[in-house]
Amino acid sequence: MADNENEMEIFDAYLFDDASDKSAFDKRLQEDPEFNTRFEAYKTLTQAIEKVEILDFKANLNNWDKEKVTKPTKIFTLKWVGIAASLILLFGLGYIFLNQKSPEDLLAANFTPYDNIITVRGEKVSIDDAMTAYQNKNYTAAIQMFESLPNDIMTTFYLGESYMAAKEYEKATTAFLQINDEESLFYPIAEYHLALAYLGLNDIENSTLTLKKIKPTSEYYASAQDLLENL
């Protein structure tokens, strides 16, 4: 530990100030074992203090996660009143605030076309083209291309998303209902968007049923609970 506040200042300059001249300090560390010991003790202490900050931050993240599961209503408010503006900026979409509660408005407020998370590879030319059209929000072209591709879970999901964005909700439900594999990457979001597609059809009964099926382990559970409260 530092002997006094001036020595601590020297230690701090060495540890935290990139601009400080370190050569004289290094020389003293080599030549003065007691100084070296005090410095090492202080360095260990500061590293541990910094690590406490990491624990503190992570505890904060834990609390945010807990809020989502145990207090869906509160999250609903935080999410939509507090961050709606940022969401619009983040995703570039016209969100509608949830104080308007018609099925159409709820759908508009909750549906965002899922991002392109496909690792595009050169050899899959058709998928590349379809995903590019999708990413560019050219949903009519994307639908045509996805429909011409082999029917796998990925193309089915993005076809469903394209139908949603094009407001062809009947076709969107058909696509999402084909995604049955609960282990699939797309299952949780497809399940949630199926409920939204029913909303688009003004089919509150099926939308409610679908939302109620969403398990607490799904990332969309909190959103589903929020939506159920407004149906």
Partner: peptide, 24 residues
């Protein structure tokens, strides 16, 4: 904190889906 919280929530579903789908 508001921005940090928003970003934390915004990235989470996609990130978790990515772990589940790509890395099983």
């Amino acid at each position: 904190q508001k921005v940090i919280h928003e970003l934390y929530n915004a990235f989470q579903p996609k990130f978790v889906n990515w772990l589940k789908g790509r890395y099983k």
